[in-house]
Design a protein around this nucleic acid. Sequence first.
DNA 1: CGGAATCCGATGCGATACTG
DNA 2: CAGTATCGCATCGGATTCCG
Lengths: 122, 122
Amino acid sequence: MTTDAFLADCRARLAFDLLSHTWNAVVLWALREGPRRPVALREQIGGISSKVLTETLRRLQYNGLVDRHEHPGAPPRVEYELTALGRTLLGPIDAVGAWAFTYGDKVMAAQEAADTEQPGAR
Amino acid sequence: MTTDAFLADCRARLAFDLLSHTWNAVVLWALREGPRRPVALREQIGGISSKVLTETLRRLQYNGLVDRHEHPGAPPRVEYELTALGRTLLGPIDAVGAWAFTYGDKVMAAQEAADTEQPGAR
DNA sequence: CGGAATCCGATGCGATACTG
DNA sequence: CAGTATCGCATCGGATTCCG
């Protein structure tokens, strides 16, 4: 596949759009080990509000990456889990995470170097 | 590495932040085959404004992923190319792109199914 | 051509409060 | 507990214009 074809392919754009939403990949990753309730996800992830978590889960559900299971009764009890399709995305996400683990320090070093040359620039 | 450690690792957040900027991955990919001038990048990518392209390139430069080469003279002639660090990110990006190529249809099918059930919802 | 400056509408996310 | 409603701030991205 040529570069142009790759970029023109709406499926590629679609994948980048998926990952370009801040919390999508993080939430998918948090679900990697099994079903989770929203409250557990929020503890596990940290720094995500109830509203944004709900929005993110809805979006992932809309794209067929997670399933929502509602257990009847009070108090409400809901669980989310990855679909088969969602699990296939863990590989690419892991590739990104592994890259970050290996090269993250170099990126931060580059940022510091840029800041040193041009303090205040960015 | 546990899920929690992965999520807490600021390097992982850094990588997701890199990909969460809409055009970063696309521009990096467009540079995969060699140095490019801005005008060529815009033709190759399509749908990106001059301003946003410049911002994206600055951001990538700041993170040490691309180099900017200015050739003196008029008219202005500038080229951007991937750094060694930038090339290491092509692997993970390719993993995402390959996923999109394989599973993109299923995602779009899931979207259509969701739209059919709840027309207007999203 | 490269890119900086400006304006502007759309969207994102967070905080808070509230419902069932 | 799960989710929604509302508000406000910040940011993003597009269009346009102007400069070297």
